[in-house]
């Protein structure tokens, strides 16, 4: 390393030092210490006592934890693909050269500016079984069917029935896909025009162009949005927490890993147990991200490579 390089390294490190310090103090230390506390009986105010893997053994036998794990996977398995599909479709539509395009882009982005808590409170009322806007839209349609077919279909009490409660949360979260739409739009605008032009000359249809040009070119953006969706879905907390008034929904149908972690840490004084849940959540997200990265090697196209 020459003198100049050493100098550059020092200056470079100096300039990123706020980030390094922030990372060490606010990320690395809590991460390492929560792994340690997950092996302890720790109530925050008394000193932590090392108990080995007891918290993990207790978790394995705790049916509420399994419920939370199932709910989290259920939610992620639906919310991630649906979120990608909805945001990508919206982005493709908003990318058309149509009149009022700017207006529509704004309209679809607006909901994601609403804070999570307001969003949750708003949808709590939208999904109300008796008075909600959602059901007063669905029920007249169902009435037409009921009349014609002699059936007795009725829209569910979204948040009050264990079977439908998670769907209620999924609708709510889908409403805030604006951010992903913007990222997709940026990706779509980066697709080289000449590819479409040559496809047009070859007589390719809209679907053929989407399938063989658009999707491959924006695959890194899809990959990015998928990872973000993965992390967000597994950490879902604010919306169900607010919608259930700090509880866990009918029959614990809205108890997610992050909620259970929070309850144990701050309501039940089981910080060690909460840390163990945190470590498991971390491991799940890490493994799924690694898996997605592995998958992306074959399916994601980078122009620079």
């Amino acid at each position: 390393m020459t003198g100049q390089e050493r100098h550059n390294l020092r200056v470079g490190l100096l300039f990123i030092s706020p980030w390094i310090v922030g990372f060490l103090v606010l990320c690395a230390y809590p991460l390492v210490s929560s792994v340690y506390f997950s092996l302890c009986d720790y109530s925050v105010l008394s000193p932590a006592v090392f108990i080995g893997a007891q918290n993990y053994r207790d978790l394995a036998a705790d049916e509420v934890f399994w419920t939370a794990l199932y709910n989290t996977f259920f939610f992620a398995a639906l919310a991630i693909p649906l979120g990608l599909l909805v945001s990508l479709s919206l982005a493709v539509l908003l990318n058309f050269e149509a009149r009022g395009r700017g207006f529509f882009r704004t309209v679809f982005f607006l909901p994601s500016l609403v804070p999570m808590v307001c969003l949750a409170v708003l949808w709590q009322w939208m999904l109300n079984g008796e008075l909600g806007l959602v059901n007063s839209t669905i029920n007249p349609v169902l009435d037409v069917f009921n009349h014609a077919l002699g059936t007795h279909w009725q829209a569910p009490n979204w948040l009050a029935e264990a079977r439908y409660a998670k769907w209620g949360i999924i609708f709510t979260v889908l409403w805030g896909v604006g951010n992903a739409v913007v990222i997709f739009l940026a990706g779509l605008q980066d697709v080289p025009r000449h590819l479409y032009e040559s496809a047009d000359i070859d007589g390719a249809s809209f679907w053929q162009k989407t399938l063989h040009i658009t999707l491959p070119v924006i695959s890194p953006v899809i990959y990015f949005n998928m990872i973000m969706g993965l992390i967000g879905s597994f950490q879902v907390f604010a919306v169900p927490y607010v919608m259930t008034g700090g509880g866990d929904g009918p029959g614990r149908s809205l108890l997610f890993l992050a909620t259970y972690l929070y309850q144990n840490a701050f309501d039940y004084w089981n910080m060690g147990y909460a840390c163990a849940i945190g470590v498991i959540l971390f491991a799940i997200i890490l493994l799924l991200t690694l898996f997605a990265t592995k998958l992306s090697e074959r399916h994601v196209y980078y122009a620079g490579k």
Partner: peptide, 22 residues
């Protein structure tokens, strides 16, 4: 008892289960 918070949460959940016929 120190566990009343969890106990009460479980009781509330029990009522929901009874309520919905689960």
């Amino acid at each position: 008892v120190t566990t009343w918070g969890e106990y009460n949460a479980d009781m509330k959940n029990a009522v929901t289960r009874i309520w919905t016929g689960a």
